[in-house]
Design a binder for these strands. Structure first.
Lengths: 182, 182
DNA sequence: ACCTGAACACCGTTCAAGT
DNA sequence: ACCTGAACACCGTTCAAGT
């Protein structure tokens, strides 16, 4: 790969990331190309279709999510309370879901069988978290990692009020977390 | 309104209903016009934008939902078990949600303050159902009609497997229904 | 090998001309 | 009053020509 090609590719992804953070996933390809300082054809040389460019952005979110899950799992295996940690993590995801449509797609990737290595890692860590949740009797015994991914993907985004999103999360958590003994 | 105008309007809505049932909400305006036997301009005379035409289809779903809720409420006040009826209703909605994106939007309409008369009716009936659920101790005491509408709108559609949709519903119901005493 | 940018296809929307 | 359909705007995608 030629040096300028590598540089262009990075610039394109950067431009797409920036523009999609503001205008959502429907930022124009011409706009992205302009911001990256290349012609549209160059964008298409690196990403055959817009959906491929979006997939690249989504993959970044998967990576972030995998990292966040690793940290979560580390805290739990270091002795932290699984319930508290899971609730906090879910709240974090919910807070970001309001502005970031790529995040929702990232969670959706964990539902499908085609797993890239990062997706596989995220999924494994999620399974470890769920196992810990079971050991601590924080999660209902029938709840799986797939269930958590399912709830994360269906978590409402911008289409709903922030208070509605919080309320939704409270109901969803009640579906997977056992009632804490007091 | 001229006789042909009334007829055209009905034809356009019919065509949109048919095409959107198959190809989803992204059926083309030209396609709809052709099927209705009118020119595109005529479609735009009756519906200033495509979103207005979609709104008309969504309004039909709201109406259907209001009718279904009335029937539900009638059964409950005639002595039926609230839990059983609510679960059955939710399953019905979930089964249709897989093929019908307008249905999801219809549930979303119940979340927003701007209520048409049909929306208001649907909302009132839903509130009555929830009240009955409370009296029978089937729903958690903090659950509201708004909560039910919220869950209906966020219920996953075509983007998810049918079995995932069923599982999602089971988890969601666990968030609002009390554990039945055995 | 990779980049450029004009051109094409598609679809929502408009508007001058018709009845 | 309402309808017609060619034309416009916008955006994803392609491709012949350039380096």
């Amino acid at each position: 790969m030629r040096a300028d090609a590598t540089r262009n590719r990075a610039r394109i992804v950067q431009a797409a990331r920036d523009l999609m953070a503001d205008h959502g996933l429907d930022a124009g390809m011409d706009e992205i190309a302009a911001r990256a300082g290349v012609a549209v054809g160059t964008v298409y040389r690196h990403f055959p279709a817009k959906s491929d460019l979006i997939a690249a952005i989504v993959a970044e979110r998967v990576q972030q999510m995998a990292a966040a899950l690793d940290a979560l799992q580390a805290r739990i295996s270091a002795g932290a309370d699984a319930r508290t940690e899971i609730v906090a993590f879910a709240n974090d995801v919910a807070a970001r879901m309001g502005e970031d449509r790529a995040l929702k797609a990232a969670a959706g990737d964990l539902l499908r069988p085609s797993l890239s290595s990062v997706e596989g890692q995220a999924r494994d860590t999620l399974a470890a978290v769920v196992a810990a949740g079971h050991r601590q009797r924080a999660l209902y015994s029938d709840v799986t990692a797939h269930d958590l991914a399912l709830l994360f993907t269906t978590m409402p985004g911008e289409e709903v009020t922030e208070s509605d999103r919080r309320r939704w999360l409270a109901l969803a958590l009640r579906g997977i977390l056992t009632t804490p003994d007091r």
